[in-house]
């Protein structure tokens, strides 16, 4: 067995998959919930950046993980609220507004990194706190499975709980029902007295909430510092994930798992004698391939069965 294959079949690989999947899953849930309400949020990149940065700086200055967590969440939600304000109130195109916010987030975090850490690249001079790892009692002693599932950062378990939370919000609350109705037929929602813009705003704020966790995990779990543009396109990969997952909880989780696996694979392959530029290309390449295959499939399906939904609703 080749060393690469051996290491991929090891429990450490399974562990790594869950680790790299975590920020993708959070971001994907953020994209999914806004998409459910019919507005596509491509500002997850920016949301994660401001949350990651805020979390690191606040934790370094206050020494409190709880305050850092709250600050990070608030920062992410504020950015989502700004998107809502531009799009819903000022009627700006949501894609353009989100691109602007992504660039704003990238710029302001670099600027503030320089102010606080006197370095334009990373905040490594600041002592950031990190979220703790959790060893799950019983499970950790199961061979192999224990090695894969136990000992993760608390936010990795949080991501799995977030899938459940997303499911409950969307399918078990009146808000979720309204979000779905607004996404499917805003006129129908409006005709029964639902404030469409308000529901869309709530969905965007929730999107900021999920995305903020992704950012916090990146800077205070995955590593322990903020680095410029450290999201590295995860906010966009999340869009691919949700498309593949059909915006549904389990689908989004499985798609995240797939992309997590590809990312982990890229890390493992990096140990071989392959140019690193090529290796870091793999996750993006897979994104493109998966989306292409998916949309061809979807079109075939559509051609076979014309959408009935369009005709009268």
């Amino acid at each position: 067995m080749s060393p690469l294959l051996r290491s991929i079949l090891s429990p450490e690989f399974g562990f790594a998959v869950l680790r790299v999947m975590t920020p993708l899953l959070f971001a994907a849930l953020g994209v999914a919930i806004s998409e459910m309400a019919g507005s596509i949020n491509i500002a997850l990149e920016g949301i994660m950046l401001v949350s990651a940065f805020t979390g690191v700086v606040v934790s370094a200055y206050t020494g409190s993980l709880v305050i850092a967590l709250l600050a990070g969440l608030i920062a992410g939600i504020i950015l989502a609220a700004m998107l809502g304000y531009f799009h819903l109130k000022l009627k700006a195109d949501i894609i353009l507004a989100a691109i602007a916010l992504n660039m704003f987030a990238s710029g302001i975090t670099i600027f503030l990194t320089f102010i606080f850490a006197h370095d334009k690249g990373t905040t490594s001079s600041l002592r950031s706190l990190v979220f703790p790892d959790i060893h799950i009692p019983v499970i950790k002693s199961i061979p192999i499975l224990g090695e894969i599932l136990s000992g993760h950062n608390i936010l990795t378990y949080g991501a799995l709980l977030a899938v459940a939370l997303y499911y409950i919000i969307i399918f078990k609350t009146p808000l979720g029902l309204r979000i779905r109705a607004v996404g499917q037929n805003p006129d129908a929602a409006e005709s029964v007295g639902i404030d469409v813009n308000r529901i869309k705003l709530y969905a965007l704020l929730l999107s900021g909430f999920f995305g903020a966790f992704g950012g916090l995990y990146l800077a205070m779990g995955y590593v322990s510092w903020f680095a410029r543009d450290m999201t590295a396109g995860r906010g966009f990969i999340a869009i691919a994930i949700t498309t593949l997952g059909g915006y549904l909880p389990i689908g989004t989780f499985l798609a995240s798992l797939l992309f997590g696996t590809v990312n982990a694979l890229a890390i493992y392959i990096a140990s071989l004698q392959i140019p690193s530029e090529f290796v870091s290309l793999i996750p993006y390449l897979v994104t493109v391939i998966v989306l292409a295959v998916y949309s061809v499939q979807a079109r075939r399906k559509k051609a076979r069965k014309p959408t009935k939904a369009k005709e009268a609703v």
Partner: peptide
């Protein structure tokens, strides 16, 4: 028609005036 295509008849029916369970849940 003013109906959400992916919702069930019952869901469309109560949209906007949803019955609650425990004050939060649908």
């Amino acid at each position: 028609l003013m109906l959400a295509p992916d919702l069930t008849t019952a869901e469309n029916m109560v949209l906007g005036i949803e019955p609650l369970r425990g004050k939060i849940f649908l």
